[in-house]
Design a protein around this nucleic acid. Structure first.
Lengths: 254, 254
DNA sequence: CGTTGACTTGAGTCTATTCAAATCCTGTGG
DNA sequence: CCACAGGATTTGAATAGACTCAAGTCAACG
């Protein structure tokens, strides 16, 4: 169920990406010590499973590198991707609040490096430390907003708009007003994340290229006019997402 | 923006449904006093607005009776229902964790009776009281699970299955193994909640009736064989939802 | 090279949507 | 108690969007 390559007992303090996490910063020192004693760095191969829906939740993970696919599967093998988590994210950190059971499956979308930590420690942290609870709350809040956006997106946007929206989101936090972004992972994975089949993705992307002046070459995306793309995308979107800000920002920087 | 009929300063302690809420029970006494001083009972007419997306969040609400539609709207007027909340639920209680801004619109789906309370008090409660923060966490956890289920549902189930799933959920908490449930609100509202158009709902319900022996008469639904319905529904579902339990329970009671 | 996996394209099908018209219901006034 | 207006729901026909299955292309890799 979980093949681990090296098995190094690791001190979380040695990993800046973890140390700078809001959740980690909120942990009291005794908990940090617990973590240091029980934290293991793992390498997980592509398609290996991190957690299984409805299994008792013993561990949660911090992603050092790679992408984790959180998903659910029907008896018939259809799968719905719930989210894709990358470096700097936690996986399974909510289980201790949800009946000590994992509420979804999770697997490595590619080779991963993670830190594995016991749920029990986190549970204890949140139960005993107010600041830890607050950090957890903040994390939930962000998660909820993302999920709400995705719900809206599924209900209101068609395939080309959802793809455009995905591309716009990739532009966030880009250093310059650069209109070049790289797709973070494979197209068929993006497709399931956006709730469509690979073929539909391919065709919808074609439509997007024709309609806006977005250019796609393999994984490289060129957006000559962000405003145009945003206009196309946001026709099917409440303005909740910082698209406006994003466009303004990008234009100012350009 | 908010038409209120009577405007009674109210003590939350007078409302058992609120008093028995996990969140309320977790509040320290000084906060309860604050609430008592700032809590107003309101009657809100159908279609009146409770909150507007991106507006500063001053108030949150506790629903005493009626249904609240939480939704988002595109510029073009398309709307996506995010959730429908009934008696015993809070509305807008997360805003203080999400930038003091409402992340969705909310309106009365029918005549409402609510208690209106200031967000600031809740914010203070959670920031100062560990137990309040934990209660809030628990509420977030449940919300997240519901949203995750809905996401899965939209991605994996077709219209008749989503309707069947909705009906199954209505069976929860039913006293006996009774196979009679009433739809909680109008069909077109259920339709948008499930992410489809009213016409589609009507047709899909017809298909459900043909496929599964479920009978529908106005708002009254009769389910002669819950197991059959569950089988039909859960073909497009991970088994996360307590459908199995539900079916077993219903059969044991029958 | 040949193979594998990822992506694209084509043809046909199915599902959900739109727009319009017909019905059914419900609360109201007579 | 009945007729009626207005809203909610159903139905029909035509269309659009997404899906399936199959075949073809492309590129990375051994």
């Amino acid at each position: 169920m979980l093949k681990l390559i090296p098995n190094n007992r690791s001190n979380p303090d040695n990993f800046p990406t973890l140390r700078h996490t809001a959740l980690f910063k909120a942990l009291p020192t005794n908990i940090r010590a617990s973590l240091a004693a029980s934290c293991t760095r793992l390498t997980i191969l592509k398609n290996e499973t991190l957690m299984v829906q409805n299994d008792p939740a013993d561990w949660f993970y911090f992603i050092l590198s790679g992408w984790v696919k959180v998903y659910r599967e029907t008896q018939e093998g259809d799968e719905a991707v719930i989210e894709l988590l990358g470096a700097g994210s936690f996986v399974g950190e909510y289980a201790f609040l949800e009946g000590d059971i994992h509420s979804s499956d999770a697997a490595a979308a590619e080779k991963l490096s993670v830190l594995r930590m016991p749920c029990s420690v986190l549970k204890q942290a949140v139960n005993t430390s107010h600041s830890a609870a607050l950090a957890m709350l903040q994390s939930y809040a962000e998660k909820r907003q993302r999920q709400t956006r995705e719900l809206e997106s599924l209900k209101l946007q068609d395939a080309p708009q959802r793809i455009g929206c995905f591309i716009l989101r990739q532009c966030q936090g880009k250093p310059s007003g650069s209109r070049h972004v790289k797709l973070p992972y494979g197209k068929s994975l993006i497709a399931t994340e956006l709730g469509m089949k690979g073929e539909t993705f391919s065709r919808a992307l074609g439509k997007l290229k024709n309609t806006t002046h977005v250019g796609v070459n393999g994984g490289k995306v060129h957006i000559p006019d962000i405003g145009e793309l945003a206009e196309f995308v946001c026709a099917g979107c409440s303005n909740e997402y910082p698209c406006k800000d994003l466009v303004e920002l990008a234009n100012r920087r350009a």
